[in-house]
Design a protein around this nucleic acid. Sequence first.
DNA 1: CAACCGCCCTGGGAGC
DNA 2: TGCTCCCAGGGCGGTT
Length: 269
Amino acid sequence: MPELPEVETTRRGIEPAINLQTIASVSVRNAKLRWPVNPDLAQRLVGQQVKSVHRRAKYLIIQLERGILLIHLGMSGHLRVLKPAPAPEKHDHVDITFGNGVVLRYNDPRRFGAVLWHPENQHPLLEKLGPEPLSEAFSVDQLYTLSRRSSQPIKTFIMDQQIVVGVGNIYACEALFKARINPKRTANKVSKARYEKLVVAIKETLAKAIEQGGTTLRDFKQAEGKPGYFAQQLTTYGRAGQPCNHCGSTIKTIKQAQRSTFYCPQCQR
DNA sequence: CAACCGCCCTGGGAGC
DNA sequence: TGCTCCCAGGGCGGTT
């Protein structure tokens, strides 16, 4: 499940292979992703040089000479760097081949992701995004101010991409455990002192997950095809019925906004 | 406007 | 073994 650490891991994997390279060919086998892949994608991309490979929230932004290529991995997507590329398999929807022989291959069984070319450097999807959690722009003051007018539970509040980007279900659960906050607590009823802990917890959790190459549950693979290793450090996510690492009481699961939340009722208040 | 809910999709696991 | 059912979930878009 690609969240910010998985997307950042992917960015670091693909950048050295494709940066400053020129696109030689593009092959789209299945255009039906979250949004249809532009039928003229090849025409738009071939001959263009990659100027940089960035990440914003969970979007990969491949800056070209003219416009940008925006890639979202959705739920089950991954990108691989192949040289040479074996024959495409099921769910290998898009290949982008570069002048150096590298093939960037987009695979996404559930097709919740996106591959979008956009003529301008800014894209409507990027406009309303909140601050990057690992930047200084994500601060206690900013988060606390926003929280005062939110009656959502704290968990859905920190998963709102307009509040802070890149915190998906797994890391929301993990960060709330680390900050010892009950996920059901209403955002505007959490004290500033606790937001201080939460901001630190989010930053530490995400940074640690990036170090470990992301979390591999079922689908995620790094660009080189390796799994991520953060799954072994999960304290709450996917551990319903198991003992809390901290107090030994049983990890509980509930539904919030149609998502599973895992938490320790003893530690998190 | 904020909050909530439905929907898109497929593979994997559980249960029978 | 094989079928059916349920679940995973990011984020848009529509409704309350």
